[in-house]
Nucleic acid binder design. Structure first.
Lengths: 207, 207, 207, 207
DNA sequence: AATGAATGAGTTTTCATTCAT
DNA sequence: TATGAATGAAAACTCATTCAT
């Protein structure tokens, strides 16, 4: 009787190959977006950079838009993974400490891949359909709101929905603008100062 | 001292005509951007809607991009005219009243032509060259900073540069997000609530 | 004299399987041609509908064209089987009765799978090579001519070749046009009337 | 007072140029269809052969299909011009003479550009929309029917609609098949024989 | 054999821009 | 100056066919 294989069954070769192709395509798209901009990111160019044929591209992505969406999703996933973890760490902290941490996280999040973030923010035409940015922000609101709900006694009476909107929008905008629109990489001091100010802004608002 | 001319120098007939053509082209571009989106705004279509030939379009604008820049500039000019006026009105007001007014103005400014604003914000690929949004914001910073300088005694000691950045970025983001990302037109109550919160955010921060 | 085998020679398992695959492929092609048209009938789609891989498709058919030829052949075979039988039945009948039967048969033949017939007639690009329609008609001529030869005494003196051409072409065209170009399915009365007229046309011509 | 120009106003240069471009495109399409077949007739190839740019092609024809339709229309127009004239000439002739003339005309019509006719008949996928062949035949029916109506006394009592269908379909099929499916050009004798037989077929049927 | 991922030439179509009139 | 016909590079996408597993 044949011995059962001792190793876990490998992913079938074909599955692995597909996966590699998809990854290569998404990666190539991101790279081109960053290096050459949205307009230069033609499907033929993407396939070429990914080292696969256009045909393969269309085997996995029904349109150029789908490819961009995949890049956005991957980037958002990376960011949210980071943000989610931070919110978990912060859940038990008192208001000011928590806010300080959240602001720091927001800035860190924008520094994950700032060039890509900038391109996605500025060059990708938002079609009505791809409201992934929306969805992305929705989770941010929800996380922040959850924190506020757990710390109601530390803050003045507020409409939590509205407060979450005000805080998340402000923090996001400050981090985004500071990280992306500053000519060079932000110095550590600049980051410190920004955290200080933003914390004061938000904590002051919630008190 | 040379006398100022009492009448505006009369444009020659051809100058006036040129001006009319340019206006028609910019107007047509804006209209198409709003109604059909950036992708549909071909130069031929723009010329057609403007009632001139493509050839004439290229007589006045060296490229499609120049046309879009003109639309952006015109929109920014309209907004800044409004904003500048508001800052002048507000210069003498005490902090909280002034902030409230500025917030209201920011929201009003986004409501000048929200559809166009949205298209310009979401669909226009920002090439490295057209940093007119930057320029646009720079004036905002300057105006706000000037106000702060004039009211130093009402606010806690701060780095005015940084404070202006924090305030302008936050106000702008709140107004932008509220006006553009809300499914429907904002109700008057919603606007009131937003003004209230934003004022508290900013005034609290500066105190 | 060698005894004929009493049972058909049993195909080997693999032969049967091959046969099944081929049938599935031809069937799938016909189905797609009818339901979605020639342009939609890609080899990948055909393989998918047939439940085999594209690779297998190319194991059995060297090209897409070969597949279409197979469908045409099968359809022609079905029709000719029917027609051949009818001619056999009719061989002994006197002219008018025979002609009436032949006309009826022609119409029936076009109704075997009218949708497929229509697609094959209208959408399949005839390359120079696949003159199977020719071959198809050649047998028709031959059968008709054979009938005429057997009934020379009932008809006026004619060039049988030419007469067969005239009769077969006319009958075929009437049946084809009536069945395929009529908006709806032909009513029984319409079919009756058509048979009547066609019979008169042909019988009158031969008398 | 300025003298009126003595010559008719020329077509404006641009009109002439447009017209020339359109003609070149339709001509090129027809030529390619004949020489290389439908499948080779890509829009780029057509434009190239026409000596204009693809852009110009799409300025005048919204799609490849539109171009083919134009070719079909032009060919049908040429044919119908010929046929219409013939029916006019024949209106007063007695049945047999008229039928003979009509048959001759049908054959002539198919010889106007037999290669093109063949390609149009065999290779052009009939989409549901382009029922120009239908329209084309409808006029044929109408003309024939009109003749029959004017000669009711010379023919047996018949349903004119049905009779026209039978006659037109048969004549058309005979001419079509003879001209297009004969390996070589038909000899004059062959044409004579065919006219003789077809006349007998139709005249016999109507008597 | 069977599979299905990969290929890539080729197709249609668009549109910013030029230029003869 | 105005016109609008003409240009042609380039883009998105398809699909018959191949070939490694």
């Amino acid at each position: 009787m044949a011995r059962k294989p001792l190793t876990k069954p490998r992913k079938s070769a074909s599955q692995e190959r597909s996966r590699a192709t998809v990854d290569a395509l998404v990666g190539a798209t991101a790279r081109i977006l960053v290096k050459e901009g949205f307009d230069r990111a033609s499907t033929n160019r993407i396939a070429e950079v990914a080292g696969v044929s256009v045909g393969s591209l269309y085997q996995y992505f029904p349109s150029k838009e789908a490819l961009v969406v995949a890049v956005v999703d991957r980037h958002n996933r990376d960011i949210m993974q980071f943000v989610r973890g931070a919110f978990a760490d912060v859940a038990a902290l008192p208001l000011e400490k928590a806010v300080r941490a959240m602001v720091a996280v927001a800035i860190q999040a924008h520094r994950i891949d700032p060039k890509l973030h900038r391109v996605l923010a500025e060059q990708i035409p938002r079609t009505g359909r791809l409201e992934n940015v929306e969805g992305f922000n929705r989770e941010n609101y929800a996380l922040f709101r959850a924190y506020l709900e757990g710390h109601r006694d530390e803050i003045r009476a507020v409409d939590l929905e509205l407060a979450a909107f005000v805080c998340v929008t402000s923090i996001e905008a400050l981090a985004h603008t500071a990280v992306l629109h500053s000519a060079q990489k932000l110095s550590d001091e600049a980051v410190e100062a920004l955290i200080e100010e933003a914390t004061r802004l938000i904590a002051g608002y919630l008190n």
